[in-house]
């Protein structure tokens, strides 16, 4: 299996593309650093006992009066910025990945059903998709988040905020999957292998999910990569606007929001470093997505 992958065209084009290799290296570092942050981070920024207010606003270690222990400095509570970033990236990635997974599940199902069944069902589903596509996705996410705040009791909402956010970002991202999958499904459903399955009486659901689905996943993979970047950014935007994750469970967006209060008073590192981390991660994901799109496009081989 691994041998086949290493011999494949996709891996060959990967090795030939330094941008893709660089992005992959950055992503792997980010992944390891964030997923294993409880073991790798220098300190635990949420362990109140280890915090010392005397350490607040330490500049990064490379600055003249920086402390060696805090490579990227500390914030107003004395939390180590590097550790906060590692923990925050983990939250951002968690939200992004789950939101995209939710968007894929919903969008691919809608696209398959619309494309395969056609007719009235297709018209209904695709009009819904069109209507949602006509709104900016961040607006949809804000709307869903606002409704959840209004409907759920306060303490329940606080404990569920992470999942509300995943739902809100996921629900704002599914239409592009639905449109792509519908298009490919309409091509696939007239191919003879689908006819062959229908002749022996295979049901519509089985034809959709076990015959057509594997053949339409290529473009989905590309869009998924690119929308992972978008989802992480959407989460950061929402958190920056203050409707995302609370400071007790900060994501990169929350860190940037908190830090920007000190930007003009000289403690720039509190917000710049989380910002760089976010930009670097999203850039790497997008570059990798671009490469994947080209690598899977037979016309560009």
């Amino acid at each position: 299996m691994l041998g086949r992958f290493l011999d494949s065209d996709v891996f060959y084009s990967f090795r030939r593309n330094p941008l893709a290799v660089g992005s992959a290296i950055i992503l792997v570092c980010v992944l390891i650093g964030s997923v294993f942050s409880p073991w790798l981070a220098p300190t635990n920024p949420f362990d109140l006992a280890s915090l010392n207010v005397m350490d607040s606003f330490n500049p990064p270690a490379f600055m003249p009066d920086g402390a060696r222990a805090n490579l990227l400095g500390t914030d107003e509570q004395g939390r180590d910025v590097l550790s906060s970033i590692m923990y925050g990236t983990r939250v951002s990635l968690f939200v992004g990945v789950l939101a995209v997974a939710f968007a894929i599940t919903l969008g691919v199902t809608v696209g398959l059903v619309a494309g395969y069944l056609g007719g009235f069902v297709e018209s209904m589903l695709m009009r819904i998709t069109d209507v949602q596509l006509s709104f900016p996705s961040i607006l949809i996410a804000l709307l869903v988040d606002g409704i959840a705040r209004a409907v759920l009791p306060r303490e329940l909402h606080n404990s569920l905020e992470l999942y509300v956010l995943i739902f809100a970002i996921g629900i704002s991202g599914w239409p592009q999957f639905a449109r792509t999958v519908r298009g490919s499904t309409m091509v696939e459903r007239n191919k003879e292998y689908v006819m062959a399955a229908r002749v022996i009486g295979i049901g519509s659901a089985r034809i959709m999910f076990s015959h057509i689905l594997p053949n339409v996943l290529g473009p989905v993979l590309v869009i998924a990569t690119l929308s992972l970047g978008q989802a992480i950014l959407a989460e950061a935007t929402l958190s920056f606007l203050g409707v995302g994750l609370p400071p007790t469970e900060p994501s990169l967006g929350t860190l940037i929001r908190i830090g920007q209060n000190f930007l003009l008073s000289g403690e720039w590192w509190v917000t710049i470093f989380p910002g760089i981390a976010l930009a670097l991660m999203v850039l790497a994901i997008n570059l990798l997505g671009d490469w994947l799109r080209d690598a899977l496009n037979p016309r560009l081989r």
Binding site: E192, A196, I200, G201, N215
Partner: peptide
């Protein structure tokens, strides 16, 4: 079960993502 069909285009009538074993076995399973 007693009727089946052979198609014109052998490049389109076999699902490209399925192994031949599963393609041939599909009617047996169905």
């Amino acid at each position: 079960r007693r009727m089946n069909m052979i198609f014109q285009d052998p490049y389109a009538s076999l699902n490209p993502r399925w192994r031949v074993r599963d393609i041939v076995a599909e009617p047996i399973r169905a």
